[in-house]
Computed example of a mutant assay.
Amino acid sequence: MTVVRPVTDLRAVRAVLFDMDGTLVNSDAAVERAWRTWAGEYGVDPERVIRVGHGRPSWDTIREVCPDLDDAENARAGARQLELQYTDLADVVATAGTHRLLATLTLPWAIVTSADRRLTAARLGAAGITPPKVVITSEDIVRGKPDPDGYLQAAAALGVPPEACLVVEDADAGLAAARAAGARTAALRGLAGDVPIKTLDDLVPLLTRRVGPGRRSRAPGR
Rank of each mutant, 00 (worst) to 15 (best):
A72V: 12
R143K: 15
L102M: 09
V65M: 14
D70L: 11
G22N: 03
T98D: 00
E139W: 13
T37F: 04
R80K: 15
E169Y: 07
D71A: 13
V44A: 10
L10H: 02
R51I: 06
I111G: 02
V25N: 02
P67E: 06
D71P: 12
P57M: 10
P213R: 15
H54M: 13
A178F: 01
S114W: 05
V160S: 00
V65N: 03
T37A: 15
V167G: 02
A192L: 14
L10A: 07
G182P: 08
Q153W: 01
V13D: 03
V52P: 15
A115G: 06
V204I: 13
D70R: 13
A121K: 08
R216M: 12
A171V: 08
I129A: 04
V52E: 10
V142T: 15
A156L: 06
V135A: 03
R76V: 08
Y42G: 04
A79C: 11
T2F: 07
A157L: 05
R118I: 15
G214L: 15
T137G: 05
G97H: 05
A157Y: 03
D91P: 09
M20E: 04
V204D: 01
G55A: 02
R48Y: 01
Q153H: 08
R100E: 14
G125S: 06
V31E: 00
C66S: 09
R215C: 06
V49S: 07
V31I: 14
S217T: 09
G53A: 10
R51Y: 05
R216P: 06
L89A: 01
I111M: 00
D172C: 07
A154N: 04
D202K: 14
L166C: 05
A121S: 10
L107D: 01
A164V: 00
F18A: 03
R222W: 11
A94T: 11
A121V: 11
D170Y: 06
L124A: 00
V92C: 03
R76L: 09
P162A: 11
R210T: 14
D172K: 14
P6F: 06
E139Q: 13
P146H: 05
A155N: 03
W59T: 13
A79P: 11
D70H: 12
T23N: 04
